[in-house]
Design a protein around this nucleic acid. Structure first.
Lengths: 106, 106
DNA sequence: TCGCTTATTAGCAATGGAGCTAAATGCTAG
DNA sequence: CTAGCATTTAGCTCCATTGCTAATAAGCGA
């Protein structure tokens, strides 16, 4: 839990998560979006991976990163529910992912 | 926005927010719940105040802190909605607060 | 194998955060 | 106004993080 909020503390890492929203990206593609050097971004990715917020997968030369949205939503959602439950609602995540991967309020 | 996530990065500060969930507390009352010294907690409170997550109010000798739940929910909720909108829903906060202070999904 | 691309790891300097003790501030009571 | 309580501010040390450059690893293709 502490790892997750520590990972979210840096603006670059939050932006990386947002960039991964629409699908996986190679480390280099991610690095190209920032002013930082490759190694710097690589370390940010390492922090996100250790927090369980992204996963990596090898594709030939490159390493593709993808977002683990459930972990982000569940962890942060748990905290929000514990602190200000009136304002937040976490939608239950379906085990069998079906594209939307959420259980609606119905 | 960055101030908020930076404030949430420390476990003590997250616990303080949670402790304030049920109402305002004096700085000393908060400090008594942790192993840290008064000045250390005072600085944590200062970080939370600068992030807009708590407000302070003087009561004679003491300074009472209270949670600003809307700011926490809206800021973090915005981020979650931007990164994994499928899993999170932010309940709209009612302007005229009525105890529950949320607009249900109806 | 060699060379090229991609990405990570190592090592270092600088910055910032967290914690403490001691000193200052603000307020109330007597 | 003095004493005392509650809290913050100042000043310091220590450790973690961030960022860089240089070096290493891993894969692909000629």
């Amino acid at each position: 839990m502490s790892d997750i909020f520590a990972a979210l503390a840096h603006p670059t890492r939050r932006q990386i998560l947002q960039d991964l929203k629409d699908g996986e990206l190679a480390a280099g593609e991610i690095a190209a979006r920032f002013n930082a050097t490759g190694p710097t971004i690589s370390r940010h990715l390492s922090v996100l991976r250790q927090a369980g917020l992204v996963t990596e997968r090898r594709d030939a030369n490159r390493i593709l990163y993808s977002l683990v949205g459930e972990r982000l939503a569940l962890s942060v959602g748990d905290f929000l529910s514990a602190v200000c439950p009136e304002q937040m609602v976490l939608r239950e995540v379906r085990k069998r992912s079906n594209g939307h991967a959420v259980k609606a309020d119905a």
